[in-house]
């Protein structure tokens, strides 16, 4: 479960990004976090990744208080999360297989297990036949699917996607969203940060709207107003 308890985040330059956010996301939920540019969506993502610390308030992820998490525990905490970025963030010189395998290698998974799991992950995202391709040989949608496979590599409980369809065409966007829904049905909590109204409206999931650093609306089956 993810809990934001009266979270305030003020950056060093004085910008108040979040001004008392309260939010609760249960295990296995699918949540859209929406809002205009500068509303505070990215700050929520940074706080969840523990890239930033709250100025005040608490964030609890599976009972872990992120403000009390020591520097050395941060990598271990991040292994509970699968992250998907708008710009894919793939290793350009590595193949699709290597990109996914690297996420496992980096956390010390034995090579045998990697060899077994990566093809299965690539099949989940329908890229089993592209394992030897490099990212530049793939379409935007395919690259995002590689990123999704990588996010799933270490079997995280939570998937956080930051504008996952921002760099791909509408048809591919639906594919990616369908995959995220499929992943959610596998029991993962999925948090999608986006400002794409049509997608949010189409999927009719829980929608949390952030406005001026506050939760202005929180509706299940909601629309992007």
């Amino acid at each position: 479960m993810i809990e934001f308890k009266n979270v305030v985040k003020t950056y060093k330059n004085g910008t108040v990004a979040l001004n008392g956010v309260n939010l609760q996301i249960e295990d296995g939920e699918f949540v859209f976090i929406v809002g205009q540019t500068g509303a505070g969506k990215t700050t929520i993502m940074k706080l969840l990744l523990r890239e930033e610390k709250t100025t005040s308030g608490k964030i609890l992820v599976d009972g872990i208080d992120l403000s009390k998490l020591s520097y050395f525990r941060v990598p271990y905490y991040r292994r509970r999360l699968g992250i998907v970025f708008q710009d894919f963030r793939l290793f350009r010189e590595k193949t699709v297989y290597e990109n996914v395998a690297f996420a496992m290698h980096a956390v010390g998974v034995p090579p045998k297990k990697i060899k077994k799991r990566v093809p299965a992950l690539l099949n989940t995202v329908s890229l089993g036949d592209k394992s030897t391709c490099k990212p530049d040989e793939l379409s935007g949608g395919e690259q995002q699917r590689v990123a999704l496979a990588r996010a799933l590599a270490n079997n995280p409980k939570i998937i956080i996607a930051d504008e996952p369809t921002g760099n791909i065409d509408p048809k591919m966007s639906l594919e990616i969203m369908n995959l995220l829904v499929k992943i959610n049905k596998l029991g993962k909590t999925v948090v999608v940060i986006t400002h794409e109204k049509s997608l949010v409206d189409y999927y009719q999931q829980r929608v949390v709207t952030i406005d001026h650093g506050l939760v202005s609306e929180d509706k299940v089956g909601g629309m992007f107003e």
Partner: peptide, 16 residues
Amino acid sequence: KSEIIIMRYVGATGLF
């Protein structure tokens, strides 16, 4: 730099 960022997000330790 970009590799390091990816490594950090997948949970690689500082030592790795």
